[in-house]
Design a binder for these strands. Structure first.
Length: 349
DNA sequence: AAACGGACCAACCGCTCACAG
DNA sequence: ACTGTGAGCGGTTGGTCCGTT
């Protein structure tokens, strides 16, 4: 008999999250921050375990999540970091702001692994497959000597002799020895500690944003691609703006994001065919889930074609606008349009 | 049009670690 | 030193999508 999960024990909801649940969790976290995950579901009024709430927030609801396809740079970085760190997805994700460990893990397993194999590279060792096979055979034969798998370029020293390992360069990226890396978090990718720190009794405080924009990685981005510090998340869709009539009632077991985006695409298409401004008029039908998939929708809306090559996301495009007038931008307008509803965290930011 | 299978991704599970008592 | 609890991580699963036959 296996152990029952906490959800089973407490008869809590499992499976996909409904927009209502997302709304509750999002509103709770943005208002109060993350104190103790185990108490979040109770306080937020959710029939979920804390673990599930945490995962949902980290992988889906966080406002700073970057969505859409991985860029070539990100792809290269993942490969390089994987070579150095192995399957330490959380640490790899820490180097890629806006990406989650889960996302990277899935991307690795579904795409990058195959890509490397296609290129004749063993995804586990990052060496040419023949060489890797030979090495495996050698390792088996040489099982007496216990060697730790090390990234290329590292001196092959036993752990005990590598007490103070210097960071090293790997394909231009500063890396730290795996052992050291494990014990040292480069930085909190979720900045939840800061997030919390910036929430007081009055609610959410605006300086969280400025913290977000001073991340090392983003600083690099800013150098070549200035970000207007004033825009932040203002353009994010208003979570509280649901029209649940348009959603499937009851169980959301069939509530896949893809399906939702399809639904939204239809909404958007209909809107644009009726009137250019109707996107805003129909904004009330956007769910939070919908907002998460807006990237792909905007790709259609702005260019008319599905963009496969690297292009700035709509969010980036928005950031890149140097003038402060975003009134023509659908999402911004959406946010403005809906600002009168219940809790609008973005207003507080 | 239906069936099938691979790809993709969200979410779960179980383990480890850190920390407080 | 031990124990309990919560957080975090990585592996795995299950559902859906989508292309092919």
């Amino acid at each position: 008999m296996g152990r029952n999960s906490c959800c089973v024990k407490q008869k809590l909801r499992k499976g996909l999250w409904s927009p209502e649940e997302d709304e509750k969790l999002y509103n709770y976290i943005t208002r109060f921050g993350v104190g103790c995950w185990s108490s979040v579901p109770k306080l937020a009024g959710l029939q979920r375990c804390g673990k599930s709430c945490r995962l949902r927030w980290i992988n889906y609801l966080r406002p700073d999540l970057k969505r859409g396809m991985f860029s070539q740079e990100e792809e290269d970085m993942i490969i390089t970091l994987h070579e150095a760190l192995g399957n330490r997805w959380a640490q790899i994700a820490a180097q890629l702001p806006g990406r989650t460990d889960n996302e990277i893990k899935n991307f690795w397993n579904s795409c990058l692994k195959k890509k490397l194999i296609k290129q004749g590279i063993d995804p586990n060792t990052h060496r040419p497959i023949n060489e890797a096979q030979l090495k495996d055979e050698k390792d088996c034969a040489d099982s007496a000597s216990l060697q730790i798998l090390q990234p290329r370029g590292l001196p092959n020293l036993a752990p005990s002799t590598r007490k103070e390992q210097e960071p090293y360069q790997l394909n231009g990226i500063l890396c730290i020895d795996r052992d050291n890396f494990t014990s040292k978090q480069a930085y909190d990718p979720l900045f939840l500690s800061e997030f919390q720190a910036n929430v007081d009794a009055d609610g959410y405080q605006s300086n969280f944003l400025s913290h977000c924009q001073l991340r090392p990685y983003e600083q690099n981005q800013i150098e070549g691609n200035p970000i207007n510090p004033s825009c932040g998340f203002n353009s994010m869709p208003n979570l509280t703006s649901f029209d649940h009539q348009n959603m499937i009632d009851g169980e959301y077991s069939d509530n896949s994001a893809s399906r939702m985006s399809k639904y939204l695409m239809n909404e958007a298409k209909e809107s644009s065919s009726n009137s250019n401004n109707n996107v805003i008029d129909n904004a009330g039908t956007f769910s939070w889930d919908a907002g998460n998939k807006l990237d792909s929708m905007f790709q259609f809306q702005f260019s008319g074609i599905q963009i496969e090559e690297r292009k700035p996301s709509p969010w980036q495009e928005l950031h890149n606008q140097s003038s402060g007038d975003y009134s023509n931008y659908p999402l911004t307008a959406l946010s403005q349009e809906l600002s009168g509803t219940t809790l609008d965290v973005f207003q507080q930011m």
